[in-house]
């Protein structure tokens, strides 16, 4: 499953970020592979907002579709 398919409120684990540049960027935000985040909001046809601890990050739809996740 990819991140753009998650539902609001779902708890998910990031399983793979194929693109290297994105991976490096995301790892510094604290969303690296294996990390567990909550899907806070899904803007229809727009970005997915995830939260980890007290941090909220909006991820554009196209980027979200390139991040593999699994529900947990």
């Amino acid at each position: 499953m990819t991140l753009d398919n998650v539902r609001k409120g779902q708890l998910i684990r990031i399983s793979n970020i194929p693109d290297e540049e994105t991976r490096i960027k995301a790892i510094r935000f604290g969303i690296s592979e294996g990390e567990v985040v909550t899907c806070l909001e899904v803007v229809p046809a727009g970005p997915v907002v995830v939260s980890k601890n007290k941090q909220e990050i909006a991820i554009g739809r196209s980027l979200a579709s390139a991040i593999l996740v699994e529900p947990c």
């Binding site: 994105t22 935000f29 907002v49 909006a58 991820i59 554009g60 980027l63």
Partner: peptide, 8 residues
């Protein structure tokens, strides 16, 4: 295009 990645 460059996708959004922004802290709220």
């Amino acid at each position: 295009p460059f996708p959004l990645l922004i802290e709220l």
